[in-house]
Nucleic acid binder design. Structure first.
Lengths: 124, 124
DNA sequence: TAGCGATATGATGAATTTATGAAATCGCAG
DNA sequence: CTGCGATTTCATAAATTCATCATATCGCTA
C-alpha cells in the first residue's frame, strides 16, 4: 500500500481513468463505513473512528491514508489528537447516489427472485 | 474472474459492504469508458463497443461480464448480435456526480501546486 | 529530556483483480 | 447439418489490493 502513487496526477491521464481511480479509493467496506461516519458530523477524532469501527489503530490508519491520498478526507492534528473530515461535500452526494442506485438494484433483483432471503435488507 | 460471486447477495451483508462492492465494479478505466459510451445512447452493439474501445473481443467481454454481474448493464441478444444498455439511469447520475467531485478535487490540487502540468486536463 | 498516549508508516504474505490468449458457445444462413 | 461471424467462457500468470503486525513519529507533560 505504501508504494502507491497519486491516483489523479499526470496530465495525460484520461478522465475515465481518473474516475476509475476515484472508485478504487471507495472500493473497500471499511472506507465506506469511515466516510459514512464522517458524513454525519463536521469532523471526527481518530479515537472516535477507532471506537466506531472496532479496528486496530494501524489498520484504521492505513485506510485513512488511502482516503487522504484520494483526496476524499482531510486531517487536522491538534496536539496529540487528529481529526478527520470529508474533503468535499460531493463525497456525501456520491454516497447518496450510490445508495439510491443500490436501492433500485436490490428491489429489482429481489422482485426477480422467488424469495428475498438472500439479499441485504435496506438499512438506513 | 470467473470464480467471482454475486456482489450484492446475502441478506446479512451490511449496506456499506454492498456499496463498496458497487464501487469495485466501477474501479477499472475501461469499465468507466464502456459505461460512458452506454450513457450517450439508448443501447450499443458489442461490435460498436469493440470499435470504440479498441479492445480484443474477449477482453471487452470480460469487462462486460463484470458490469452484468454488478447489475450496471443489461444485455439483449438479437440474432448473432448482442446489444448493451445501462441497467438503471442512476448509473449515469453516479458518473456525473463523480465527475463533479473530481473537477473540484483537480481544481483544488492544481491551485496548491506551483504548476498544473502534472494533472489531467478537464475534458468533457 | 524521557516517557507516554495517539497515530502513522513500513514490511510482507494472502487474497483479489487485471491482462491475455485459447477454446467454447450462440444464432444464422446456405 | 456445416460453416462462419459474433460473442462469451475458461484458464492462468502478473499486478494490485488487503490484512496484519512491528516499528516509527508526533506532540504533550513532568
Amino acid at each position: 500500500m505504501k508504494s502507491q502513487s497519486e491516483p489523479y496526477s499526470d496530465e495525460h491521464r484520461p478522465l475515465y481513468e481518473v474516475k476509475a481511480n476515484l472508485f478504487k479509493g471507495l472500493a473497500h467496506p471499511l472506507r465506506i463505513r469511515i466516510l459514512e461516519v464522517l458524513s454525519a458530523a463536521p469532523e471526527v477524532a481518530v479515537s472516535d473512528l477507532l471506537a466506531e469501527t472496532g479496528l486496530e489503530p494501524s489498520h484504521l490508519s492505513q485506510h485513512l491514508s488511502v482516503l487522504r491520498r484520494h483526496h476524499l478526507v482531510v486531517a487536522d492534528r491538534r496536539g496529540s489528537l487528529v481529526y478527520y473530515r470529508l474533503a468535499y461535500p460531493q463525497v456525501a452526494d456520491l454516497l447518496a447516489v450510490s445508495r439510491s442506485l443500490l436501492v433500485d438494484i436490490l428491489e429489482t433483483t429481489r422482485d426477480q427472485l422467488t424469495g428475498s432471503a438472500t439479499l441485504p435488507t435496506l438499512q438506513p
